[in-house]
Lab assay of single mutants.
Amino acid sequence: NKFNKEMRNAYWEIALLPNLNNQQKRAFIRSLYDDPSQSANLLAEAKKLNDAQA
Rank of each mutant, 00 (worst) to 15 (best):
M7R: 02
E13Q: 07
N41K: 13
N9W: 15
S31L: 07
N9P: 02
I29A: 07
S31E: 07
Y33V: 09
A54D: 09
Q23W: 15
A15F: 15
A46D: 00
K47M: 05
F3D: 14
N50Q: 03
S39N: 07
P18Q: 10
K25R: 12
W12M: 12
M7I: 08
A15V: 12
E45H: 09
L42S: 07
E6R: 02
M7G: 02
A46T: 01
L42D: 01
A27K: 08
K5Q: 07
Q53R: 03
A27Q: 06
D35K: 13
R26G: 05
A54S: 10
R8A: 13
N1V: 07
I29P: 00
Y33W: 07
S37V: 08
L43W: 03
D35M: 13
D51P: 01
N9H: 15
Q23G: 12
K48T: 09
E6P: 04
N21W: 12
L17V: 00
Q24S: 04
Q53V: 09
A10M: 07
N41L: 13
E45S: 12
P36T: 04
L20E: 00
N22Q: 11
E13A: 15
Y33Q: 04
S31T: 04
A46V: 03
E13H: 15
E45N: 12
N19T: 06
Y11W: 04
Q38C: 04
L43E: 02
N21M: 08
N50D: 08
R26W: 13
S37Y: 12
D51C: 07
N22Y: 15
N41I: 12
R26C: 10
E6W: 03
N9F: 12
S39P: 04
L20P: 00
S37M: 13
A10W: 06
N1H: 04
F28R: 01
F28S: 01
Q53W: 10
R26P: 00
E13G: 14
N21Y: 13
N9Y: 15
A27P: 02
S39I: 14
A27E: 05
Q38G: 08
L20F: 01
W12I: 07
Q38I: 07
K5H: 04
W12H: 08
E6S: 03
L16F: 11
N1D: 13
Y11N: 02
L42R: 07
I29F: 15
R30D: 02
D34G: 12
E6H: 05
N4F: 12
Q23P: 07
E45T: 10
M7C: 02
N4I: 04
L43I: 12
Q23S: 10
N21K: 07
K2P: 07
K2D: 15
E13F: 15
K5T: 04
A46F: 02
R26V: 04
S31H: 11
R30V: 05
L17G: 00
N50L: 01
Q38H: 09
L17R: 01
D34R: 14
